[in-house]
């Protein structure tokens, strides 16, 4: 009894119980157990424990999974903050539009409204885990063709990989007077930026960059060749401006 006992440790016994010993070692342990009833009983008891654990708890595996656990969209409370902030700005904007109603205020209100709509679209879709876009960047050609056709302009989704942002994809959204497009980008940390584009620019054909802070979402927006662009993100203003500049330059090579 003493000689084989020397070669088998407590760890060996557990590893044997869990079926994780290499074949040769397993045979050695079995030889040892045949000669040592006390350890044999120990091993038998441990094996029995594992069996009983499964008998006790395996039925849980068959329980239907609540739908709230299957859809991360259900965890809406964690996205509530930016959305609520954006909604608050709708109210403020509405009041501002009322106060500023009048001929000369029209264009200003329109521009601010554009930035606000872009910010809301950003706040709503950028936290989406499962469905951030309708068409992914994998089908980029189709995405551009589709959105160009629906929005009624020649759209492009500039590549921003050199700035650390990959194109995720895009979606079609209802705008004030018709469909608008949203392209989504994401950096390696999951930080997302959205580029919101509409074709109706009113009387203006070109503008400089303008910045608007809509709650936690910053927006740079501008008009270029009868397309209105808004780049939104919850990043530092300088970072957003850098990307906005890059977008502008890539659209005007």
């Amino acid at each position: 009894m003493s000689s084989p006992k020397l070669s088998v440790s407590e760890i060996d016994l557990h590893t044997y119980v869990d079926g994780r010993l290499p074949e040769k070692r397993r045979e050695e342990v079995e030889t040892f157990l045949a000669a040592n009833p006390q350890e044999r009983e120990q091993v038998r008891a441990y094996q029995e424990q594992n069996k009983i654990l499964h008998a006790l708890f395996d039925s849980v595996l068959a329980e239907p999974i609540p739908s709230k656990w299957q859809n991360p969209g259900q965890y809406w409370t964690m996205w509530l903050k930016p959305v609520a902030a954006a909604l608050a700005w709708i109210v403020v904007g509405g009041m501002l539009g009322w106060v500023l109603r009048g001929e000369q205020a029209g264009q200003l209100a329109t521009n601010m409204d554009f930035a606000r709509r872009a910010a809301i679209a950003h706040a709503v879709f950028s936290p989406e885990v499962r469905h951030p876009v309708e068409v992914t960047a994998e089908q980029e050609e189709h995405l551009i063709r589709w959105l160009s056709k629906r929005v009624g302009g020649d759209l492009k989704a500039p590549h921003l990989v050199d700035l650390g942002y990959e194109l995720v994809g895009g979606r079609l959204l209802p705008g004030e007077k018709g469909p608008v497009a949203q392209f989504m980008y994401q950096d390696k940390n999951g930080q997302r930026l959205t580029l919101y584009i509409k074709t109706d620019t009113g009387a203006e054909r070109e503008t400089a960059f303008r910045f608007s802070q809509e709650g936690t979402v910053g927006v740079f927006y501008w008009i270029d060749r009868r397309l209105s662009y808004a780049l939104s993100g919850e990043v530092r203003k300088e970072e957003l401006l850098k990307v906005a500049n890059a977008v502008y330059q890539k659209l005007n090579p």
């Binding site: 849980v60 999974i65 299957q70 990959e166 994809g169």
Partner: peptide
């Protein structure tokens, strides 16, 4: 390698692990 596609895969992956987590 697309981040989003991977996230979608991961989301499905999480759902697959729910029964053992629950057990």
């Amino acid at each position: 390698t697309s981040g989003v596609l991977k996230i979608v895969d991961d989301a499905d992956g999480i759902v697959a692990h729910i029964p053992p987590l629950r057990r």
